[in-house]
Computed example of a mutant assay.
Amino acid sequence: MDLSLRLELDCLYSNIESSIALLTSALMKDCVVDKYCVYKVEKKRGARVVEQITSMRSAADVFSDFECISPDNSKETSIYPGYFALKQDGPIDEISSIVSLINDNKRALKSFLDKHNRPKEVHLSSGPQVKLNPLMFEAHPMKNPNQIFRELKMFNSKARMLHMKWTRKQRYDKHSIDSALRIIAYNFDKPPVLKYSTSQWQMILTELKAHLECLPVSTEIKRIKPAPSIPQIGVKFEGSASWSKFHGSLPLIFTTDGSLNVTAGLSDLMNEMVIDNEKLLELGWVPLNEELGFYLRT
């Protein structure tokens, strides 16, 4: 990496860390936070394990956690659903200005990387992976860009009610026969782990390919694939009859008059069968291949 680029990158990254330190310091002052609740969520053995952070200091420190969970998987991160409810007579304007500064600093670093990055292949123990932020990877290999670029959300409106839950939406993508055949070709040497051998998988896909080629060219294949389960925070602000819903990657910051009613927290999530074939059959969906998510509508 060119030295001038490295110096600029380090300066932009340092600005983010410094502004987050200002926020942490502001939140830790007396008579600022009325109530807080922050969870740490990680993937463990096929589940989402939820741990409530009980220390105020540790809860405030989550804004500066940019570390990769594993050096072999820079996409895997911890997430921190939760909230900080600020007292309405506290330094709201000061904290709002700091949050804006943090987000501006995050955008500045992202713009710098968007301008100067060139995608490159990095070989790790799990195989080749394309890094979208190679400059960041070279300068700070254990920092996760997904964590760094998550912007903070602060609301000046007073929150009256709050709940947390897991939510998940399945994707329903339309594919032509030709598009489905390309997906088969791409997955031909990628059998589901611990379910099929390569030869078994290739035999299944060969039969599927032959079946699709016999269907009318105008046939529409639906690919029903699960999206990840994510924590959702619902907040009802003063003056609004509806719930505002947010994905819980980082704690929300808002004000309260001390009467915030939290109706539900977050608990561990065990993986469930996302695609229930019995229900899909009732709706008229016939499975062509469950692993690829291919279905036909009868």
Rank of each mutant, 00 (worst) to 15 (best):
Asn144Ala: 11
Val99Met: 06
Ser240Asp: 07
Ile98Val: 13
Lys131His: 12
Ile230Cys: 05
Leu113Ser: 01
Phe66Glu: 08
Pro71Thr: 06
Val50Trp: 10
Cys214Glu: 15
Ala185Pro: 00
Arg6Ile: 12
Lys75Val: 07
Thr77Val: 13
Phe188Pro: 02
Gln232Val: 09
Gln232Pro: 00
Asn105Tyr: 00
Asp178Thr: 06
Gly258Arg: 10
Pro192His: 10
His247Glu: 15
Ile102Arg: 01
Gln202Ala: 09
Arg57Ala: 14
Leu281Cys: 05
Val130Gln: 03
Ile95Val: 04
Glu213Cys: 03
Pro216Leu: 04
Lys75Cys: 07
Ile177Arg: 08
Asp65Glu: 10
Ile69Met: 11
Phe137Asn: 02
Asp10Gln: 13
Thr54Gly: 10
Asn15His: 11
Asn15Arg: 12
Lys131Cys: 13
Ile183Ala: 04
Leu296Cys: 07
Ser126Met: 01
Leu7Gly: 00
Ser96Asp: 09
Lys43Ile: 15
Ile183His: 03
Cys37Phe: 10
Asp10His: 09
Leu288Phe: 01
Phe112Cys: 08
Glu291Gln: 12
Lys165Ile: 05
Ala108Leu: 03
Ile148Leu: 03
His163Ser: 13
Ser218Pro: 03
Glu220Leu: 15
Met154Cys: 14
Val217His: 06
Ser64Ala: 14
Ser100Arg: 06
Leu283Cys: 03
Glu282Met: 14
Asn105Arg: 05
Val122Trp: 11
Asp30Tyr: 05
Asn271Cys: 04
Leu12Gln: 10
Lys106Asp: 07
Glu151Gln: 15
Leu9Cys: 06
Val130Thr: 14
Val286Thr: 07
Pro119Leu: 07
Ser19Leu: 01
Arg297Val: 12
Cys214Met: 15
